[in-house]
Design a protein around this nucleic acid. Structure first.
Lengths: 252, 252
DNA sequence: GCGATCTATTGACGGAGGTCAACTGGCACC
DNA sequence: GGTGCCAGTTGACCTCCGTCAATAGATCGC
């Protein structure tokens, strides 16, 4: 619990950031070896979550940020009536829990979509380290900012695009994130259900299902339940803004 | 530029927070007289914006938060194709500019909907004051948190509600915010165009127009161009979730 | 192994809301 | 006051997508 750099034991190192397969992706990206060690020290524990298990709920006290190490999660909100709106899906290397930064308690919920491994970064400790390591602080800010931009993009997609464009945009975004993971960006293995995708996009499950079928007919995808292969990335990209004039574009 | 409390001159006080008609609403809410003075000192200048004038643009360097003193603004993002998505409308007493907190540059734009007066809170200075006045810091965090919750609500409205429910929700939200301003919550004076409302809700302008007419027929509203009177708040509230089963509610 | 249940797909149908067009009323500018 | 222009309204039409229903395939528990 010393504010100064902590000596690491081997055990710590084994599950630590510098040895993590994702270490180019999450917080430590672009951080030097020395500073990486100090970040390592803040990683409290690796947590396993089974499919359906909650990482945090609305109202939970905020005490840590979390990095997805393997698996995936969805975060969502619920209104009084109990219906849910999915805000985002989270893949390995991505950090979640920012929603609680301001109020010190979570205003959304996070649930594992499959068996997932999570790194816990106790915030008090993280804060101490980031105050000592400016590069880390900047990196954290960059990640939060990306989160904000992503939420704006989600609003834009929901508000201005048609169902097929939304699906294309969603798949392209997933493909991009898969690629950053050095996985094959063309071979998606969807961990979320059709219901989840529909909810995320503001559609119903039948529409999502039909769109998968239609895009398969068009030769863009090859769909086999959870496994989706992008055969024609070029066509997919085109579908993100297929009919250039859908809805009113500008409110000038 | 001293980190310690600054002596205020009369000139400063005249346009300052403690004398501001909105001082119960924005940042200083619940802050003691002494601390209020210190916040006063951070308010740099009152800015006037004409209708259509930009407060900040995407990419602008972040150096201040802003409080709407009078008038109103919209904030929005634009994609590569140039179409816009309105994120929020901002009424007097509300603080904007948070979008730049993380990355140190704005990732959205803010434009005045009418002639508006703006308080500028240079962030460097504000930061110094909030670090000295915990109550102020907490209040700032609370405001940011409300912003996040509001964005979640927006997503929920767009994703899960029908056009009429969306409109009802939008109007009720406006009415609530008017009431906090000690204005008559039933007599709305919309500063945004029908296009803006449509864009905000992900609809087209004709739909918005028709919904105003329909709600007038139903006896809920009295609409006269920009001026909207809520005749039956009870009915309006009911419309926010009229058909309890629209769209699929849960993705469990 | 077998039913129960959940997830996904597909078809038929209808309606909410988008598109197109015409019209009106304000408002600014000569 | 006339004219042009833009914001807003209204109607006619049509389509996208939500609803309902049936079915098949997975998955799970026993």
């Amino acid at each position: 619990m010393e504010p100064t750099a902590t000596v690491l034991d081997l055990n710590q190192l084994r599950r630590s950031c510098s040895s993590c397969a994702l270490h180019e992706l999450c917080l430590p990206a672009g951080i030097g070896a020395d500073d990486l060690n100090r970040l390592d020290a803040t990683v409290k524990d690796k947590r396993m979550l089974d499919r359906g298990a909650m990482l945090y709920r609305e109202g939970d006290k905020f005490d840590a940020l979390y990095v997805v190490r393997s698996g995936s999660l969805k975060s969502f909100v619920q209104n009084e009536a109990g219906d849910m709106q999915i805000l985002a899906f989270h893949l390995p290397g991505e950090i979640i829990g920012f929603d609680a930064l301001a109020s010190n308690q979570h205003v959304s919920q996070a649930e594992a979509l499959e068996r997932s491994s999570i790194c816990e970064l106790p915030y008090a400790h993280l804060q101490r380290v980031t105050s000592e390591v400016p590069a880390l602080h900047r990196q954290l800010m960059r990640v939060i900012s990306r989160e904000v931009v992503e939420e704006h993009r989600h609003l834009m997609v929901m508000g201005r695009q048609q169902a097929q464009e939304q699906m294309a945009t969603f798949l392209k975004s997933l493909a991009n994130r898969y690629q950053r993971l050095q996985r094959d960006g063309a071979a998606l293995n969807l961990s979320m259900s059709r219901y989840d995708i529909a909810n995320y996009l503001g559609l119903v499950v039948e529409t999502v299902s039909r769109l998968f079928s239609r895009m398969e007919e068009m030769g863009v995808l090859e769909v086999n339940r959870k496994s989706v292969r992008i055969l024609r990335p070029d066509l997919l990209a085109g579908l993100c803004r297929a009919d250039t004039m859908s809805k009113q574009k500008d409110a000038s």
